[in-house]
Design a protein around this nucleic acid. Sequence first.
DNA 1: GCAAGCCTGACC
DNA 2: GGTCAGGCTTGC
Length: 286
Amino acid sequence: MPELPEVETVLRGLEPRAVGRRITGVEIINRGVIIGDPVSFQKHLTGRLVAGLRRKGKALAINLVANGAIHGDCLLVRLGMTGQVVVTRRDAPLLPHTHVRMILNRGAGEIRYRDSRRFGRLRYCTREEVEKVFESLGPDALEMTEKQFRDSLHGRHGSIKAWLLNQQMLAGLGNIYADEALFEARIHPQTPAGKATDRQAGALLRAVRQVLRQAVALQGTSFRDYVDIEGRPGNFLPQLRVYQKTGEPCVRCGAAIRRIIICGRSSHFCPRCQRRPRHRPVQIAS
DNA sequence: GCAAGCCTGACC
DNA sequence: GGTCAGGCTTGC
């Protein structure tokens, strides 16, 4: 599941391979992954130079140059659940679920977009469009200040878990790192977001940063499909302490990890280390 | 049948 | 506006 660390890993891998190269051709195998008109997508990308990359949360923008002029337009990539961006030789066998190929000049091979579940999307964006998308996201989880974090929690009635997953609050966390950060901060996932104390908010932000930074350093988590642009899995999997560990002993206290459903998403936590809040949770597991 | 990110739409 | 359910999708 690509979350912030996985998208950051893709960005870092793509940078040396794509920046400074020209896209000489675009082949759309499955138009379902393209937002907008596929023909105009092709037209806007073909012949363009890749100027640089930019990320906010899980959104990746590949900035484009035309005739030496930067217009601020870009290719926006959202990987969804199973999206993969890989750079391969042009003659590499076409793997299943390859939906788009973008050929790079000077023998740099091609960028391929693969996605078995097709939740991910590629979209050509003008400067205005990409700004609008980025503005709709909360602060990037690694850039957020403690004040922003506390202010944003204030007055929120849903659970802290749902809040962490809400990309308009902070951008970059998905189910894996949300569960891991809550465990690290010893906060019960059903704690009402607005009821978190300053102390808990501080601990949670530190936990979010720590988990994400470590995951970036280890090139992400490959739970099922995620690979980097060279096709390599991430190395964070052995670091997981609660995600998908239902019934296993907590690494801190030995209690059995529990799984409950919050907002239709599974939440894994230690019932002893992460105490249920005194206040009745607003959100009940369905 | 479950998992997930993101979008839409319904509800208060 | 805040909040949540539903739908998309397919491999396990």
